[in-house]
Amino acid sequence: MTVTTRPSTPPGGRQQEGRAALLDAVLRFRALGLVVALVLLVTTTWLANSRFLSAQSIRDILLSAALTLLLACGMTMVVVGRGIDLSVASVLGLSAFGTATVLADHPGLPVPLAALVGVGIGAACGAVNGVVIAYGRVPALVATLGTLYVFRGLVYFLAGGSRISAGELPRGFLDFGTARVLGIPWLFLIAVAVLLTVGEFLRRHRAGRDLYAIGSHEEAARLAGIPIPSRLLGAYVVSGTLAGLGGVLYAARYGTVDASAGYGMELDIVAAVVVGGVAIFGGSGSVFGAALGALLLTVINNALPVLGVDPFWQRAVVGALIIAAIALDRLVALRLAASLRRRDADVH
């Protein structure tokens, strides 16, 4: 009589399955926590001021969230690959001023062409970051901290203390910045379209999955034949391109553009990503979690003034959220490592 036995799962496979299951549980718990925090914050603010949930207030929140969400999508791709891009706000400012300048200096220029100029500026800045980091092997934190100041300095040099007012820009361009479809701002719909595209790319496309592999273990990814430099370069180009698109939308929404456009936004972008569950050490997280983080940060920035909270504490809250999210990621990593060591001991 022949006895058929089911092949046992190798220890390494069990470890990977356990790690994935635990990570999935943690990320789901964090997403649920973000939703609960969002509901509680909105409810508390609405009870303090019923106008907080007026149609105009909701549109303002969605408009503010659009830019944060857009840049968070690009930042997610970079952070998943164990990188960081601190220059996104400076790239946004450079793109916004470049787009506004082109439109003001060439009145007959089609708006889509000017928008392409702004997006191209962002892509070029992202390529600079990518080449320096992926091929120059400069740490991402150092490289993008440097380009943060370089790109911002370039904006100040080009602006020369001047600004471009709304009266110098085409009416159609400005109208688009506040246009709505069924009450939802176009800018927010564009951000959602980018969110879905990036989410699909990271989940199903090979290059997107490669970024997770690089972030999880770069040496293992290299041994597996993953082209690490080109993947990292692509992630930074996407981040720069989306920051460039954010600059175009910034100019359309606000109309008046000067050298300080987007100044300080990088803190909110990083906060949205790490609070949304994208591990700052790379290898895990999703762009949809980052979207929840972006929405939560936007609501916080809009709700705290309504609640009469001092501006200092508004920034302190954002900083505290970043620290708490990183601490949680580190705790999860330590628990995973301890769990894997125990399983190894049981196997052997």
Rank of each mutant, 00 (worst) to 15 (best):
residue 3 V to G: 00
residue 6 R to W: 05
residue 6 R to N: 08
residue 7 P to C: 02
residue 11 P to R: 10
residue 12 G to V: 03
residue 17 E to A: 14
residue 21 A to M: 04
residue 21 A to V: 05
residue 22 L to I: 07
residue 22 L to M: 13
residue 27 L to S: 14
residue 27 L to C: 00
residue 28 R to D: 05
residue 29 F to K: 04
residue 31 A to T: 02
residue 34 L to E: 14
residue 43 T to E: 06
residue 54 S to L: 02
residue 56 Q to V: 12
residue 65 A to S: 08
residue 66 A to K: 05
residue 67 L to G: 07
residue 69 L to M: 13
residue 82 R to W: 01
residue 82 R to Y: 01
residue 83 G to T: 11
residue 84 I to T: 12
residue 84 I to D: 01
residue 85 D to S: 04
residue 87 S to A: 14
residue 93 G to H: 05
residue 95 S to D: 05
residue 98 G to K: 10
residue 100 A to L: 08
residue 106 H to I: 08
residue 109 L to Q: 09
residue 109 L to H: 01
residue 114 A to M: 10
residue 116 L to S: 00
residue 117 V to M: 06
residue 119 V to P: 03
residue 125 C to I: 13
residue 125 C to M: 15
residue 126 G to D: 08
residue 126 G to H: 09
residue 135 Y to S: 09
residue 136 G to P: 12
residue 138 V to H: 01
residue 143 A to E: 03
residue 143 A to Q: 09
residue 144 T to S: 06
residue 152 R to P: 02
residue 152 R to I: 00
residue 154 L to F: 13
residue 156 Y to F: 14
residue 157 F to A: 13
residue 160 G to R: 04
residue 160 G to S: 02
residue 163 R to F: 05
residue 169 L to S: 04
residue 171 R to K: 05
residue 174 L to T: 01
residue 178 T to C: 01
residue 183 G to D: 12
residue 186 W to N: 14
residue 187 L to F: 11
residue 189 L to P: 07
residue 190 I to C: 06
residue 190 I to D: 00
residue 191 A to T: 02
residue 192 V to L: 10
residue 194 V to A: 11
residue 199 G to L: 04
residue 200 E to C: 09
residue 201 F to H: 12
residue 208 G to H: 09
residue 208 G to P: 08
residue 211 L to E: 11
residue 211 L to H: 11
residue 211 L to Q: 10
residue 211 L to Y: 14
residue 216 S to A: 15
residue 218 E to R: 15
residue 229 P to I: 14
residue 230 S to C: 01
residue 235 A to E: 08
residue 237 V to E: 03
residue 240 G to W: 03
residue 241 T to I: 07
residue 246 G to T: 11
residue 248 V to W: 04
residue 250 Y to E: 13
residue 251 A to S: 09
residue 253 R to I: 00
residue 253 R to T: 00
residue 258 D to Q: 14
residue 259 A to R: 08
residue 261 A to S: 15
residue 262 G to Q: 13
residue 262 G to N: 13
residue 264 G to I: 04
residue 269 I to H: 08
residue 270 V to S: 14
residue 274 V to K: 10
residue 278 V to W: 08
residue 278 V to R: 13
residue 281 F to N: 12
residue 283 G to H: 12
residue 284 S to L: 04
residue 287 V to T: 11
residue 295 L to P: 10
residue 296 L to M: 09
residue 299 V to L: 13
residue 301 N to G: 13
residue 302 N to L: 01
residue 303 A to P: 13
residue 304 L to E: 04
residue 308 G to V: 12
residue 309 V to I: 15
residue 310 D to M: 09
residue 312 F to V: 15
residue 315 R to V: 13
residue 315 R to N: 14
residue 317 V to M: 12
residue 319 G to Q: 06
residue 319 G to T: 05
residue 323 I to T: 12
residue 324 A to H: 09
residue 325 A to T: 07
residue 328 L to D: 00
residue 330 R to N: 11
residue 338 A to G: 08
residue 339 S to Y: 05
residue 339 S to I: 00
residue 339 S to H: 09
residue 342 R to T: 10
residue 343 R to D: 06
residue 343 R to L: 12
residue 345 A to L: 07
residue 348 H to N: 05
